[in-house]
Amino acid sequence: MSRAEPARAPGARPFALLGSELATLFRRRRTIAMLGALALVPILIAIAVRVTSAGSSGRGPAFLSDITQNGLFVGFTALTVSIPLFLPLTIGVVAGDTIAGEASLGTLRYLLVAPAGRLRLLGVKYLGAAVFAIAASAVIVVVGIGIGALLFPIGPVTLLSGDTIGAGDFALRALLMIGYVSMSLLGFAAIGTFISTLTTVPVGAMAATVVLAAASQIMDALPQLSAVHPWLFTHDWFAFGDLLRNPISWDSYAQNAVLQLGYIVVFGSLAIGRFTTTDVLS
């Protein structure tokens, strides 16, 4: 009688599922379309500014007026435009789809029977959403810098503090900014993953997740609720500007990291509690 070895077989890679998850996620047409739409944001901004050569100071999103003088600012302008809606929208779609999407396809039961292990699957799914968040912010910044360099003159970058930095420092800060923005979205992705464990209808989970991001931003804009502002997961989303100060203000980075970690712990635990006890009936 053939008897497969239950212990870990030689050559089994524990990260194979993560690789498979990322490959599946990024080969999916929907994912590519969303990243394409995000890449379109800086491209449209750059073309609009180029065509109209509008740079009226003080109007429009931050950094817009800087673009004509330095194309490298297109990436930052695009981030400013994308953070309130486009980024949470795309990450809400991916995070809301994590478990609910597999459940609606029915593949969830086969992954679990494989056995993927419920904790491992949940972790891999969340990591997939997190990697997407990094990819999404990187696409905006990198495409923005690229299109800006193509259409506008580039040169040393002026920080918010009025000081000027060179190319190496700029590249470092752009990287830090991608890191900051993706980190800002991690708590949100955890919320989306938790909501995704509650339903087998992915669209419902996506919508609920995106609505939460909007609600949090609205609450953040109401001064009457100032007491809860520091606890909102969207509160520090725009503080990526602190990376454009001299010296870099790390306070918001640290504060945001702690805040996002709190959200990850709370909603991660809720997701684990829910997902490890629920009956998979789809």
Binding site: A7, R8, A9, A12, A16, A114, P115, A116
Partner: peptide, 13 residues
Amino acid sequence: LRLDAADLHAPSA
């Protein structure tokens, strides 16, 4: 390939 990768014990080779 994806479902097989989900099995922690399945040799990838």
